[in-house]
Design a protein around this nucleic acid. Sequence first.
DNA 1: GAGTGGTCTAGACCACATT
DNA 2: ATGTGGTCTAGACCACTCA
Lengths: 262, 262
Amino acid sequence: MKPTPVYQRIADDLRQAVADGTYPPGSKLPTENVLTERYETSRATVRQGLGVLVNEGLVEPRRPQGYFVIEHKRLVYRPQAEFRRRPPAVDIFTNLVAEYDGRAPSQDIEVSIVEPTQMVRDRLGLEAGELVAARRRVRKLDGTAYNLNDSHVRLSLVQGTDWMTPADVARGTNAVLAELGHEIVYALHEFYLRMPSPQEAQRLNLGAGVPIAEHYATGFDADETPIQVTVSIVPGDRHVIVFDSYRDRENSDQPRIPWGAP
Amino acid sequence: MKPTPVYQRIADDLRQAVADGTYPPGSKLPTENVLTERYETSRATVRQGLGVLVNEGLVEPRRPQGYFVIEHKRLVYRPQAEFRRRPPAVDIFTNLVAEYDGRAPSQDIEVSIVEPTQMVRDRLGLEAGELVAARRRVRKLDGTAYNLNDSHVRLSLVQGTDWMTPADVARGTNAVLAELGHEIVYALHEFYLRMPSPQEAQRLNLGAGVPIAEHYATGFDADETPIQVTVSIVPGDRHVIVFDSYRDRENSDQPRIPWGAP
DNA sequence: GAGTGGTCTAGACCACATT
DNA sequence: ATGTGGTCTAGACCACTCA
């Protein structure tokens, strides 16, 4: 039998105390110094133990006040919403906010011409060197970023159209694509789970221990040609990802994933 | 201007070196002692820097050989597969393995009678105190666990039926439910992203910095009564979550989420 | 046996927000 | 001004694997 490391015991004890309600969400944990005395160890060891809980996303340090138990409030993230007829097709984000009361949604939009990443190139079936139009949106609630959405379309398809307007397009960008003869009728969604890069963590104001989902939504037109790839970064602590399925669906080849993963 | 902490610089430098291919997946990083000399600091600081990368899931320590860059191999996790007609409805897991070559799938099944968690109780609409049958499966590939699936049904519904057989049911457990007059025709899927608990990390052999998705699949019969709730723990580094959607779907009230989140 | 990472000690100085 | 967490030092002993 090997004894449990001290820092693990500290983490386990506190995790248990959080779980059983001794420290409810939002409450304050004992300070590092108090724990150092309680466990008769050094502060470095206590910090190692608290670090475990921070990396689990269970508590957060608020300097110089102490460690606090995190409270989660999640929005519904429902990519399918864009493809429903009744109620009328609404933007994903509008739909999200509907489930959240009284908070002001906004978004920053930026349009540019870029070389696509390999992931986007694979999904749009592009030749090396071909350029895409990128429509980057930062979705915000009460001013703080909630998720990032970057849509990509072949440049030759949308150059000079409203798709590239760096502002809200009233009728929706999907309507613009439909006018161009490429209505999106089918979408394939992929979610890759990982920890954020430091840049992502900063942009989205993520605490330690908050995973993200990298969401690739590939939209196809009636000819089964891939038209648009939207890459979203979805912070795990602020969303629940939702979709539904019916057993009685006809028309179903298995969607194939002929592309590489990151 | 505040200078970047030394441990951050170490983490940033190594992350960059991994990104640009200096250390490709599977390769070995410099040892702690080498880095201690290179950065003219203490080993504790170097360890703090490496800890950042470990928590990002980018590298893993292999004692006593050093730190190595992680390589990912992902399976397709596609909850919708269970609800398709053509090709014939297949078990999720069988479908997954189809995309993975030459590895031997297996599963451990365990059936018990339990008090449901609040999440399950909410989704099945149970009274306090009502019991459920739980069918717990550990899905394995070449002997190592890949994901956990716990299905829950009202005990009164399946007691004494094949649903509770702690082994593979050839015709499938959904067929058993159909025979009982509760064919599942609609399912609502929710994904909650978080870091694993230590128990989950151990059961699934997760490295540090590997997030998981907690997947709730609630199955409804033709009367729109919730019949079955399956809770899956999906390790983020071994899966890509996939589903699709069609624009021409009729029949669509927005799915409501009237229940609490964890 | 040599070298690795894992754990731990006992100090130190700092920036920062609340009081 | 005080107390908080953030960073860092310079050691120490251990368990483990590999040559």
